[in-house]
Amino acid sequence: MKMNRTNTAGRILALLLTALMVLSLAACGTKGGDKMDGMSSEPKNAEEAVAMHKELMAQENAILSEDTALWEKVFMAADKGMTMQEDGKNYGDFLLKTIEDAKEEFSDEEFAWLKEAATEISNIENKLTALEEKYPEIVQQSMDGDMSIPAGSDTSNPPDDGSMQKFPAFEGKDLDGNAVKSDELFSSNAVTVVNFWFTTCNPCVGELSELDALNKELAKKGGALIGVNTFTLDGDEAAISEAKDVLAKKGVTYQNVYFASDGEAGKFTTNIFAYPTTYVVDRNGNIVGDPIVGAITEKKQAETLQKLIDQALAADMG
């Protein structure tokens, strides 16, 4: 911030600003390419082999989750029975064959990309098999429950780093004055979607009717949706009546709750600054995946939300 008069300094800053713009562009549109190096050396012991095995599987998953829509097409083709996966055969080769068989379904560009990706997977699989042959015990250690072969539609599991974050506990009331306890609420539902909004937030109000529809759908699957209007925290009478007014106009039937702003959940709410924000919470009160920022009237956001809900429901079944 210390230039002018000296033209050069101004120019440098201008250039810096331009560079920043370019960088931010790049950050928005990264499409990861090849991340296949540094893993060719032989492992010295079983521990290293496990690490390597894990790394390879992560790479494979990364490739598979890079363009989910396109892979979906491939799996669809495989589902139609065009090609059969034979036991013990290389999964990459299977993908390659499926892609070749369904060639006409893809554009040239897609086909080229898929082929390259499948070849890469094939290479990874070869390395994996070699590792598994040499150290049979690593298979168990490396893939505790995680499949190396994606079994169909859902290939993009968000990275669960094991440490699930608890949704902050609260004891509050709904806008009609009925007591609501977070642990009871969460444990009685397979999945709870928590939507944070406020009355004067246009996109928040805009998504209310869609959230209501989602709530009805969730009810069939043993889930529920609740809203938290941040203006109503601590039971502000005027804010509650305004919120109720908007909810009535939008035909919302699901529960809206409030709690004390100085409690655990209240502090959590103050830290949310972008609205609307939607959390998915499982039966144990853990937050599933990352919160969804922005209205779910946007198709992309609705899909992300549905994925998280399905994930929570599937986990609840298992």
Binding site: I292, G294, E298
Partner: peptide, 8 residues
Amino acid sequence: SGIRAALG
């Protein structure tokens, strides 16, 4: 990252 995901 949440806001990044919301870019439309």
